[in-house]
Write a protein that binds this DNA or RNA. Structure first.
Length: 602
RNA sequence: GCCCCUGUAGCUCAGUGGAGAGAGCAAAGGAUUCCUAAUCCUUGGGCCGCAGGUUCGAUUCCUGUCAGGGGCACCA
């Protein structure tokens, strides 16, 4: 259309016959005064045509022909040279028809075209309960999964369990030492356990109350749990470590379930070893010439080949394989399983680790650009403005379970998704608990509950949805247009957030939508005002029509029934009700993606 | 030393190659005969860290610089 206008200008010899290459981009302006769509083509051409952009814009605008049946209402030149387009009102109003028809499917798209994506997240070592930082990763990962699902991706969620290796042994040793110290003496267990080697509590062992609980649990183990007396100390530690790791993992699973987060697979590092996948991966690297042996260890040649700082150890001189070795095998598996996109959500302390993993993926001949890593920055937990310290080792931490118990799952998830994943997050416990407007979670949920309340009241009055016929001219208030525009924007927001892997945009959007709704609600009535009983006339006492429960009888005196409104009044109310209902549908959809529940009443 | 992230209102943070830069909190004052006052309104408040560059146009992109956080193991 714009090109037509320019061509017309050329024909009139206002523009030169030879136009330079140019691009026409249309954007949504931030301010409603600037129209519904804006175009900056005049700026792009101004320099080349040696004309002021404003003048150029006016020339173009005057040559644009609008089809009378089209969706555009008018076009004008504005500002320094923008072309602003105004859509006809029915275009905005039609979004309500669409939402009413699609309901919860509004916002779904086929962006992903069924491509398969694996999202690995949380993946905390089973050496202690999840803390709030893991909770943030869980919230981000789970919401991202939802976001991608509605955007047409096939999503697979996975937790990688590091249930073997040094940390697990350390856990085993910590638990066994506590067992010998606090549980075993005088327990009579010497009849069951024979030849237990003495184990001291390691210097860097795990502290915290859960270690003693695990030690107490050991007392319930059957006799065949314990290694035979001639087995080495390491065997005892390993057995206790695996036991403790499994117990901790059960707790982690339970905590995540309470947090509303589930996984399609709990991938086990032990399994990677048992199935020979680690050895296969190493053999693969060997065949491709990326392994090197010196100083008794086996190294991945990442320094000269991939520009890494240094080579990395895969097999220690002791013969033990490093975590990196099994992680290479795990990533190799992800590629081999045929995922189109691989998303890892890691703690920000892993950032130095990413280039190394990418190097290994390239070394194995896989496309590393399929891998995208989201780093989760630390959560700064505040209570009454004071920082709450966290560290797994010292045992002084607030667990995810504690957090959920204190502020609730909904508030916790919302706060975790409030900020960009890679920026530091201040989490104020007092604010999250507050049942007040300054708490964003309640603010959004309340907007939802309010609509339910309106709908309930409407039902009593006999006003129902769907609207029989849509009259776009009924919603003409600026506040209504603001809401309509925001609803139109929603599917776009979902797509963009899914593409960028950034669920936090959704929390901001919902807050804004809730705010616009609250303002609208405050200033205008959705339903017709109640009439006093004198005005109500002869219909009194009659029981109302379908779907009314008997408990409403007492209220009927003040209520009006269907047919008791002016037709225009009824139509306006229905249109506004459709708007509110559509706002609610979108809030529900948004909160669902974030994993937050919607209350019908508050 | 090298690498990554972050510098935007008093605080916590959104945001964008374009049109007086936004929200929440905090401060002060106000608003319910009527669909939930868990709401709403008003008022102040800003060299978008600093300096260059690219551009018709930079808070946004590039370079440098300063400040804060984090990472650089034969740990995971």
């Amino acid at each position: 259309m714009i090109r037509d206008a320019l061509a017309r200008g050329q024909a009139e010899a206002v523009f030169p016959a030879e136009l330079p290459e140019y691009e026409v981009t249309i954007e949504l302006p931030r301010r409603s005064e600037f129209g519904d769509l804006a175009c900056n083509v005049a700026f792009r051409l101004a320099g080349k045509l040696r004309m002021p952009p404003r003048k150029l814009a006016e020339l173009i605008a005057s040559r644009i022909s609008l089809e009378p049946e089209g969706e555009l209402d008018r076009v004008e030149a504005a500002g320094g040279g923008f072309l602003n387009f105004l859509l006809k009102k029915r275009v905005w109003g039609s979004v309500l028809e669409r939402i009413q028809a699609e309901r919860q499917a509004y916002g779904d798209s086929r962006l992903g075209q069924g491509r398969r994506v694996i999202i690995e997240f949380v993946s905390a070592n089973p050496t202690g309960p999840l803390h709030v930082g893991h909770g943030r990763g869980a919230a981000v990962g789970d919401s991202l999964a939802n976001l991608m699902k509605v955007s047409g991706f096939q999503v697979w969620k996975e937790y990688y369990v590091n249930n073997i290796g040094r940390q697990i042994n350390l856990l085993g040793q910590s638990v066994l030492a506590r067992f010998q110290e606090k549980v075993y003496p005088g327990s009579g267990l010497d009849k069951v356990i024979t030849g237990m080697p003495a184990v001291e509590f390691p210097a860097d062992g795990y502290q915290g109350g859960y270690i003693l609980d695990l030690a107490k649990g050991l007392a319930q183990q059957p006799a065949d749990f314990w290694p035979s007396s001639e087995k080495a100390r390491e065997e005892w530690i390993r057995a206790v470590g695996i036991y403790a790791g499994n117990r901790v993992l059960e707790g982690i699973k339970a905590d995540l379930e309470k947090f509303g987060v589930t996984f399609d697979l709990w991938a086990s590092e032990q399994e990677m070893y048992k199935s020979g996948k680690v050895d296969q991966a190493l053999a693969d690297l060997e065949n491709r010439g990326y392994l090197e042996r010196h100083e008794g260890a086996t190294w991945f040649k990442s320094k000269d080949t991939f520009g890494e700082e240094k080579d990395r150890v895969l097999i220690r001189s002791t013969g033990e394989k490093t975590y990196f070795a099994s992680d290479i095998a795990y990533h190799r598996e992800k590629y081999a399983r045929g995922f189109d996109q691989i998303v890892n959500i890691w703690g920000s302390d892993h950032h130095g680790y990413i280039p190394r993993v990418r190097a290994a993926i390239q070394a194995l001949g896989y496309p590393e650009e399929k891998l995208r890593v989201i780093l989760i920055q630390f959560v700064n937990l505040l209570r009454a403005g004071k920082q709450v310290s966290m560290s797994t080792r010292s045992g002084e931490f607030i667990t995810l379970a504690d957090l959920v118990a204190e502020v609730g799952r909904d508030a916790a998830r919302f706060f975790f998704l409030f900020r960009k994943a890679d920026s530091h997050l201040d989490f104020d416990l007092e604010l999250a608990k507050k049942q007040a407007p300054e708490n964003p979670v309640f603010y959004v949920q309340y907007a939802y509950a309010r609509v339910s309340s309106i709908r309930e009241e409407a039902r009593r009055m006999g006003i129902t949805l769907p609207v029989p016929e849509w009259d776009p001219d009924l919603l003409t208030l600026p506040e209504e247009l603001t809401l309509l525009r925001q609803l139109v924007w929603f599917p776009n927001l979902i797509r963009e957030s899914a593409q960028a892997l950034e669920p936090h945009h959704l929390t901001a959007y919902l807050l804004e939508l809730a705010g616009n709704f609250h303002r609208y609600y405050h200033d205008y009535r959705v339903l017709p005002p109640k009439r006093s009983s004198e005005e109500q006339g002869a219909r009194e006492g009659q029981s109302s029509g379908e779907g009314q429960s008997s408990k409403l009888k007492g209220e009927n005196q003040n209520d009006r029934e269907e047919g008791n409104f002016e037709p225009e009044e009824l139509k306006l109310s229905q249109a506004r009700l459709a708007l509110c209902d559509s706002v609610q549908v979108v809030i529900r959809k948004g909160l669902e993606i974030l994993g937050i529940q919607v209350p019908e009443k508050m």
